[in-house]
Nucleic acid binder design. Structure first.
Length: 293
DNA sequence: CCTCTATGGCGAA
DNA sequence: TCGCCCTAGAGGC
């Protein structure tokens, strides 16, 4: 579930459940045991996110740096009976607990104990994050406009823009009619400004709802009289994992293809092929027939 | 039951 | 480019 909105939502909920009081910290699985012992019983000052990174800010400059990766889960539970946290199930790398709540971390790519300098290094390597009020979108634009890499690649490069993952990438490019293989240098400033504003709004909604919904009001299941999406993602989207299915806007079959190691999705009519010096980019790219299982 | 895929990204080769 | 992290849901048998 982890794009930037998931991490920000997690930071808010962890702050709510644990901040301002001493926290029991343990590593039932053992891989974080020594670090957990160092901070066990100290006060959590806050939890915060930057892009897809999560920081648990404990007293005395101890910070837990977490990255969920693709399969990581950090689940917060409220106890029905105070002080009755259940035995951990599965590989729990990190458990936070107090009298009322506990939170279990599983499957994370990264879980390290660092200091505020370490956090500054992580944050410095990230591009502007649409979920942070202090973000400067021009830093991203200056890189995009000078790059010949595909916009579908740039938009998901965390050093260019922080927090965007494979769903928001496919969806935001669809919403702006931009083919994912267009070079960054082919975009106009106004197009990027619109994309940025859209990401700010879409991701803020994602923080509130905990899901990724990108369809405009006229394309919801209710408005179109179509069945709602039924898969593990839940959100209503235009193209993500909809290859071979008709576009909600024009009816063309949504296509998929690999872009720097990840599947991406687009509508061949709503996101027209970019033409440059008589060459056609992306024309032969993509499969409308193969569907994910 | 098994196998596959996935909203990431790191480090080894 | 690949393995890993080792979760979770879907689909096949």
């Amino acid at each position: 579930m982890p794009e930037g909105h998931t991490l920000k939502r997690l930071a808010l909920h962890l702050t709510e459940a644990f901040a301002g009081r001493p926290v029991r910290v343990s590593s039932p699985q053992g891989r974080f045991a020594a670090e957990a012992a160092t901070i066990d019983g100290s006060t959590l000052e806050r939890a915060e996110s930057a892009g897809k990174h999560l920081f648990l800010d404990f007293a005395a400059d101890h910070l837990v740096h977490i990255h969920l990766g693709l399969i990581g889960v950090f689940e917060i539970s409220t106890l029905a009976t105070p002080d009755a946290a259940p035995a951990p199930i599965g590989q729990v790398r990190l458990r936070l607990s107090n009298t009322q709540s506990y939170a279990d971390l599983r499957g994370a790519t990264r879980c390290d104990l660092i200091g505020s300098i370490g956090r500054a290094e992580v944050v410095a390597a990230l591009g502007p994050d649409p979920l942070r009020a202090d973000a400067d979108p021009d830093l991203a634009w200056q890189r995009i406009r000078r790059s010949n890499r595909a916009i579908g690649d740039l938009v998901m490069d965390q050093a260019v823009l922080a927090g965007i993952g494979n769903v928001y990438r496919a969806e935001v490019l669809f919403r702006h009619g931009i083919h994912p293989l267009r070079p960054g240098s082919s975009l106009r400033a106004g197009q990027f400004a619109s994309i940025w504003a859209d990401l700010v709004a879409l991701m803020a909604t994602g923080v509130e709802t905990g899901r990724i919904d990108t369809v405009r009001p006229e394309h919801t299941p209710e408005a179109m009289g179509r069945p709602p999406r039924v898969d593990d993602h839940g959100g209503e989207v235009y193209v993500y994992r909809r290859n071979g299915m008709p576009c909600h806007v024009c009816g063309s079959l949504v296509r998929t293809g690999e872009l720097v190691g990840r599947n991406t999705f687009w509508c061949p009519r709503c996101q027209p092929v970019f033409r440059s010096r008589g060459r056609t980019v992306g024309h032969t790219h993509g499969r409308s027939t193969r569907r994910p299982t």
